[in-house]
């Protein structure tokens, strides 16, 4: 088995438990403030793997993760799946060189995309009668941007920066 294959295996093995952890973080009670302004934790992991390591099935994986969150929330099936997939799609389609940006640029993009997608999905939810009027879009987006720093640093350390770079060279989106 080549070294590149081993690295890829290591990446996939890290992705599933990390996604499970973020799904649990998405439903666990984190206090009044965080419950109201909860950032999309799985999106951070999915964006990292999609953009930095060039995961081939990132959109499909985002969709499945979103469906699981819908089922756990009791939300209309597909709404969180669309929120997650749209964010990953925008990063990999509009920012082809995302992995070479500086960390603060990546954080800014993550925050802005989260804001845009959540506003669109809020309109969609309203059209279907799932209305809520005190949703704050700005704070979750800011939290997403702020969380990108620790997530990026931790994941770089966990799976190795080299592995990420190798992966992105092998199979870019």
């Amino acid at each position: 088995m080549t070294e590149a294959k081993l690295r890829r295996q290591r990446r996939s093995m890290a992705l599933i438990p990390l996604l499970l952890l973020t799904v649990i973080l998405q439903i666990v009670s984190l206090g009044d403030f965080m419950d109201l302004n909860r950032p999309d934790f799985p999106v951070l992991i999915l964006i990292y793997f999609a953009a930095s390591t060039g995961s081939k099935l990132s959109l499909e994986l985002s969709w499945i993760t979103g469906i699981i969150i819908d089922l756990l929330y009791g939300a209309p099936l597909g709404i969180n799946a669309l929120i997650l997939t749209a964010q990953v799609y925008l990063v990999i389609s509009q920012f082809a060189n995302f992995r070479v940006y500086t960390i603060w640029q990546q954080a800014l993009i993550t925050g802005i995309i989260n804001l845009i997608v959540n506003v669109i999905c809020f309109w969609l939810a309203h059209m279907m009668g799932q209305s809520a009027y005190d949703i704050n879009f700005l704070v979750p987006a800011l939290l997403m941007a702020a969380l990108w720093f620790p997530v990026r640093i931790c994941l770089d350390m966990l799976i190795g920066k080299k592995a990420a770079e190798d992966g992105s060279d092998e199979d870019a989106p």
Binding site: P76, L77, G78, A81, L82
Partner: peptide, 28 residues
Amino acid sequence: AERGKNYLIHIRFAVIAVICVALMAVDV
């Protein structure tokens, strides 16, 4: 090749978005 890959990403997302909207409508 890169252009082809990008084109494929748009199609994949379009299919997923249509499935999501259809699922939402049916579920609600």
